[in-house]
Design a protein around this nucleic acid. Structure first.
Length: 896
RNA sequence: GGGCCUGUAGCUCAGUUGGUCAGAGCGCCGCGCUUACACCGCGGAGGUCGCCGGUUCGAGCCCGGCCGGGCCCACCA
């Protein structure tokens, strides 16, 4: 195949002794991040080569982090996963398209700006040139909401832009420090002009194809932010409430009891509803009752959604207390009697369906009250009227909240824009389910979340928001002779005019003075939901409109990395947009990262206040160390925040530096004359080591191809530690023998040196995606260019040098060495202590390996006398009858 | 109520199609300054693989049930 497996150039571990490597006397991780970030930047190491064709490109739809504060270690975690993937495929020879974006539009930024500058947006105000905010920074936080200075939308947006620009600089600095191999010339903002153009163009096309539509309907509404909220942004939370048993009255005065947690909605009641099969209420169906206090006559109806087990089995249907009410209202064609307004208070005017004197008098008390105080008033009145049976019974119920809000959502009728997503159309839903089925999730079980969500949609995608800092809905409405907007014939701008702001720009055929006057026009006042823009990140990043040539080279993209919590939002909405616009998936693969849990196993999030900011960690432990920690966790699995794991990563990175220093002390192999150097590897132990490494290369490569970076790292790391602890020790003497003059050394010495160089070359490449700084540092000691643009290692050249050797020879020799070490450790003597004589009891299977590497075992174990070998059935080598040579007394250093 | 994930040494986790699978690292204990590394090295102790059944010659690994942890959806009378 294939796009992802281009032919590798015939390079590999290559070696020819030349000059000495430029190895520092003292190696260190300190300062590598700043040095290499600058070098990569200057050399364009990660610059995307846009001359490549789609088949030669690996494109990544980067998650744009929300710019409303600071990044935390969870970001470091998941973004490292992506970077490992990017680096792997880059080394595999694909040109990696890896842009970075900032999600800076939307509510989080609005709130941050309000708190930072002590202002709030009032779209009715005019723009002020050269505006200066009353506060800045911490001072703005102390300003009460009521005292925030009202400013125009344009001034507000300017402040948003200013603050996000500052945040984004800090974000970029952090990502650079972490070593993300992003091409920083390709970055975008979701509030940026390009993003607005893309978002509005896509919307206008959705509109033209009737995929977007406007409708007035009851919907979930956040009374704090005073905006409509989409299904995907809901969060069910526990909320205290109370059941109130309330009496309605039949014409003869007899009571019919219902239970409700929302007694303040009694003035909005439109029916009582019970299950059609519920025998208790058969005699009531078709009759009417009157509501207590307000005396409104309402029907008793049957509907299968009523559950006999709940409460007393008969419910009061209000417009609107919950989504079931909406369904009853729609299906039973009930009247609309809304009493809740958009600010969460009861309407100020007494509704016309309340006609009784007592009802009117009571409603005047309720007018303008919040639901909470209205409830108290209604309950007191019910109690007084004798229509409250018993006292309210406290209960803990689930209520829907906007995920960023802190008051339960109400249901308010409003006009909104929707994009069809299968929520009301079985055929489209099945199509989108099938689209999701084409997507390769990593790990694969995450696909279930997509299927569950799409299968459970109960409405189309609500995209309009009554907010300020976002992409405007790009339409106007004609005003009729009465000045009323004609929502059925929205005026869309031509694509060439985009982006537009309908509150400032004027539609074709109108003049500015016709705004807001009968026969004129009005702009849609709303903005698009954040997801309506970020669902287009592949198009924004890939240059869909601005750079079609680029777009053709990167789209559909290869990879969407993201968190599991936004499969229902970001992932799904992106699939929807791509399906509607391009008839394809936006990417072939989705890599889903888990969460970071704090040491108490709680999800780490800003709202919980348990976040750890990354820069301090990066500076203390080093970027490679944090990357190691992140790369140690599998995709889709939550991971603990563990300092210990970072320390291990740091140790590994330092080990890479030191082991490399050792290997390169024997001369700097260069990339020429590969065959010649491979031929130098003649000693069985050396060949066995390379054979083992070849296996590691194959398995690690396969793991990375399957998005299993954890296994690749583990395989490489395990090999590397054995390489350091056993192989290096075994060949150390042989490698040192004969001095530095290359031509004079024995074949054994030449073999060790060649094998060490070959192994180091492959090991550095294997580690490069996870430890970009340490590996690049070493690479710079002996090679031209960047390790991150070097080809990914292949096993072929290693096997050629290994000549079919058996990797277990290294294991056998290592086991023999361990046995000798154990003797010394037990005797509490230095590892340098010489052994005059020893018998090694060797497992049958390891016998040949020990025999063939005996000289190296002898040297590494400091055995000066005879080694007797016996075979036995066992798992590892055991040393016995050992004669240790007593150490000579240490010379005492005299300090004068 | 439906669904997904998960429960292996004190801690964090590997254990790929059931047959040396009882592992690694950290931590802990002991030892050692060995011309790559004391930001190090060497050695050691530690677990009836959540529980109960079943399939099998054989099960952390497969099946059923139970218990515990996490998450998503539904449930707002």
């Amino acid at each position: 195949m294939s796009a992802l497996n281009p032919e590798q150039p015939p390079t590999g571990p290559t070696i020819a002794r030349t000059t000495a490597a430029q190895v520092p006397d003292k190696v260190s991780l300190d300062g590598l991040e700043a040095r290499w970030d600058a070098a990569w930047s200057a050399q364009g190491t990660y610059a995307f080569d846009r001359t490549r064709t789609r088949e030669q490109v690996f494109s990544i739809d980067t998650p744009p982090p929300t710019v409303s504060g600071s990044l935390h270690v969870g970001h470091v975690f998941s973004y490292t996963h992506t970077d490992v993937v990017a680096r792997f495929w880059r080394m595999r020879g694909l040109e990696v398209f890896y842009p970075m974006g900032w999600d800076d539009n939307g509510l989080p930024t609005e709130r941050r700006v309000q708190n930072y500058f002590g202002v709030r947006c009032d779209p009715s105000l005019p723009y002020v040139e050269g505006y200066t905010a009353p506060f800045e920074g911490a001072a703005g936080k102390s300003v009460r909401a009521a005292d925030q200075q009202p400013i125009s939308r344009r001034n507000f947006v300017e402040l948003c832009m200013r603050l996000t620009a500052e945040d984004e600089q800090q974000f970029e600095a952090l990502w650079r420090h972490l070593g993300l191999s992003v091409d920083w010339s390709h970055h975008y903002q979701t509030i940026g002009r390009d993003a607005q153009t893309v978002a509005q163009t896509a919307f206008v096309r959705n509109l033209a194809r009737a995929e977007a539509y406007t409708a007035e309907a009851p919907g979930l509404w956040d009374v704090t932010f005073q905006t409509a909220v989409a299904q995907a942004e809901l969060e069910a939370r526990d909320y205290p409430g109370a059941f109130h048993k309330v009496a309605f009255h039949r014409p003869d005065g007899s009571p019919v009891y219902i239970e409700t947690t929302r007694p303040e909605l009694l003035p909005a009641v439109v029916a009582l509803i019970a299950h059609p099969d519920d025998e208790r209420y058969q005699h009531l169906f078709g009759t009417t009752v009157t509501s207590p206090l307000f005396g409104v006559e309402i029907p008793v109806l049957a509907h299968t959604m009523a559950e006999p087990e709940k409460g007393v089995g008969i419910a009061m249907c209000c417009t609107f207390g919950d989504l079931t009410d909406v369904q009853w209202w729609r299906e039973l064609q009930l009247p609309t009697r809304s009493v809740l307004t958009r600010d969460g208070r009861l309407t100020r005017e007494t509704p016309d369906w309340i006609t009784s004197a007592a009802g009117t008098a009571l409603f005047i008390q309720l007018a303008g009250k919040t639901t909470f105080s209205a409830r108290t008033i209604v309950v007191d009145a019910l109690r007084e009227a004798g229509d409250l049976d018993g006292e309210p019974v406290a209960t803990q119920r689930k209520a829907n909240f906007y995920e960023r809000g802190d008051k339960p959502l109400e249901i308010v009728t409003s006009r909104q824009w929707y994009i069809r997503n299968g929520g009301r159309d079985a055929e489209l839903r099945d199509t989108l389910l099938a689209r999701g089925g084409e997507l390769k999730f990593h790990p694969d079980f995450m696909a279930v979340r997509y299927q569950n969500w799409v299968g459970g949609l109960n409405g189309d995608w609500l995209v309009s928001r009554q907010r300020f800092f976002g992409v405007p809905i790009p339409v106007w409405y004609p005003l009729d002779a009465d000045g009323e907007p004609r929502y059925d014939v929205p005026i869309a701008p031509p694509e060439s005019a985009l982006p537009i702001d309908p509150s400032a720009d004027v539609p074709a055929g109108y003049t500015p003075d016709q705004r807001g006057v009968p026969g004129g026009f009005m702009g849609d006042p709303d903005i698009m939901d954040t997801w309506a823009t970020s669902s287009l990140t592949p198009q924004i990043a890939g240059g869909w409109l601005a750079d079609p040539d680029l777009f053709a080279r990167v789209f559909p993209m290869n990879l969407r990395p993201q968190g599991q919590d936004i499969i229902r939002t970001w992932l799904f909405s992106t699939v929807v947009r791509s399906h509607l616009e391009h008839g394809s998936l936006p990417w072939s693969d989705a890599a889903i990262s888990g969460w970071i849990l704090d040491p108490d196993h709680k999800k780490m999030s800003k709202s919980k206040g348990n976040v750890v900011t990354p820069m301090g960690l990066l500076e203390e432990h080093g970027s490679d160390a944090l990357r190691y920690w992140a790369a140690s966790a599998r995709l889709g699995t939550d991971a603990a925040f563990e300092i210990g794991q970072m320390k291990i990563g740091r140790r590994l990175a330092i080990k890479v530096l030191n082991a490399s220093k050792f290997v390169l002390a024997f001369g700097a192999p260069d990339e020429r004359a590969a065959l010649l150097d491979a031929d130098l590897v003649t000693v069985p132990l050396d060949r066995a080591m390379l054979a083992g490494l070849a296996d590691v290369v194959d398995r690690a490569t396969s793991a990375l191809e399957q998005y299993d970076h954890t296994r690749a790292l583990e395989l490489t790391e395990t090999f590397f530690w054995a390489f350091c602890d056993d192989y290096l020790e075994l060949v150390k003497d042989r490698a040192y023998a004969g001095g530095a003059v290359e031509s004079d050394v024995s074949t054994g010495t030449a073999s060790a040196r060649a094998a060490l160089g070959i192994a180091l070359d492959s090991l550095l490449r294997l580690f490069a995606p996870v430890l970009p700084f340490a590996t690049e540092e070493v690479w710079s000691w002996w090679r031209e260019g960047s390790v991150h643009r070097a080809p990914w290692p292949t096993s072929g050249p290693l096997r050629a040098a290994a000549r079919d050797a058996d990797p277990s020879v290294v294991t056998a020799a290592g086991s023999a060495l361990a046995a000798l070490r154990k003797v010394k450790s037990r005797a509490k003597v230095s590892m340098r202590t010489e052994i005059a004589a020893v018998t090694l009891v060797v497992p049958t299977a390891l016998g040949p390996g020990v025999e063939v590497a005996l000289d190296d075992v002898r040297a590494a174990g400091r055995v000066t006398g005879t080694i007797t070998i016996e075979t036995a059935e066992a798992e590892s080598v055991v040393a016995r009858d050992t004669e240790l040579v007593p150490a000579e007394p240490k010379p005492v250093e005299l300090h004068i």
